[in-house]
Amino acid sequence: MIRTDPPTPDLFLTPVDEVFVRNHLGPHPRLDTATWSLTVEGLVERPLRLDFPTLQSLPQTRFTAVHECFGNPLHPTVPTRAVTNVEWAGVPLAAVLELAGPLPEARHVWLEGADTGDFGGESGTSYLKDLPLDLAGAEVVLAHGMNGEPLRPDHGYPVRAVAPLMFGTNSVKWLSRIVLAADRPDHLFTTRLYTRVLPGESESRPVREKDVSSKLLAPGDGSSVPAGTCELAGYAWSSTEVTSVEVSVDDAGWQPAALDRRGPDPAWQRFRLPYDLAPGPHRIRCRATDSAGRVQPLAGDRNAVHEIRVVAEASTHPTGR
């Protein structure tokens, strides 16, 4: 399923039916909580095999976070703008690591899904991601719920990893195995794909931390609206708080939009700007800045400023005399 813009975009929480789905390795695995288990192995004092009831008996957490697809790893600079805002429920990875007891030489956490298939010229590969142990222990949640309901099969049922400050590629679905290791794994989805060179740098790094970004959602791209005052609105997000959003109409100067604060969860932030649209076609753009000082580029990268085109139609109602 390829879907970028949800039918009802102007909601703080994206309905599960409208959350995008991305799979690299063919049809998703058919798993059952009665037989599913999660192994924790490698550089640990106590290797574990957790069934679903045991996982649910561990401390639980609930939070709302932006869920964003990085895009096609074969074309890392092409914008996709597939993004949603979701409430997750699950178990902090830290609780599972505490049970297993990482050994002192453990430096990395490998997260492996149950899905296998062919991608990027490799056959029979699994979906594997890795994170530094301290980062994974502080951020990752083993989620079994999404917007108040159990995960659906195409979203990782029964359990997926969620790394809320990172791109969705790090939130491994159909989680089946966790390995603690001294080194990173050399794998298609760790060292050969989902890497990039950031602006101002010369060496490639793993795709992890979200970029600063924003997206116009109202009015809809390609829509017709009445001429006159129109609210230009959307959402902005980053791995840290977004501090400002600006909007430009027809290449005029950038105007500051009203922006909601982020709050304690890494959710997206709504912005809005009332604007008087003259009759005719219009090009509207938005750009965000975050607390790290990062600004969306005008062009040339996956988080380049978003633009929409609308037509403002003059009223056809006759005037009275």
Rank of each mutant, 00 (worst) to 15 (best):
L93S: 00
V91I: 15
A82H: 12
C69S: 13
V66N: 04
T84P: 02
V86L: 14
V91Q: 00
H67V: 02
A89Y: 02
R81Q: 12
P92V: 04
G71D: 07
V96I: 14
F70C: 08
G90N: 04
T77F: 05
H67A: 03
F70H: 14
A89K: 12
P92K: 05
P92H: 09
A94V: 08
E87W: 00
L97F: 11
A95L: 02
A82I: 07
G90K: 03
T77M: 04
V96G: 05
G90L: 02
G90Y: 04
P76N: 10
P76V: 09
P92S: 08
N85K: 03
T84G: 12
T77H: 10
P79K: 07
V86W: 02
P76D: 10
W88Y: 15
E98D: 15
N85I: 09
R81W: 13
N85G: 07
V83P: 03
L74E: 15
E98T: 15
W88H: 15
L93D: 00
T77L: 11
L74Y: 06
P79D: 06
P73K: 06
R81S: 10
H67I: 01
T77D: 12
H67Y: 14
T80N: 13
L74R: 14
H67S: 10
E68D: 15
G90T: 01
P92R: 03
V96S: 08
W88P: 00
A82S: 15
V66L: 03
H75E: 11
V96L: 09
P92D: 08
P92F: 07
L97N: 08
A82K: 14
A95C: 13
T84E: 07
G71F: 01
H75Y: 10
P73S: 04
N85C: 15
E68Q: 15
N85A: 08
P73N: 06
L99K: 12
V86A: 06
F70S: 07
V83L: 06
V91T: 14
E87L: 07
V86F: 02
W88D: 01
V96Y: 09
P79L: 08
E68T: 12
G71M: 07
N72Y: 12
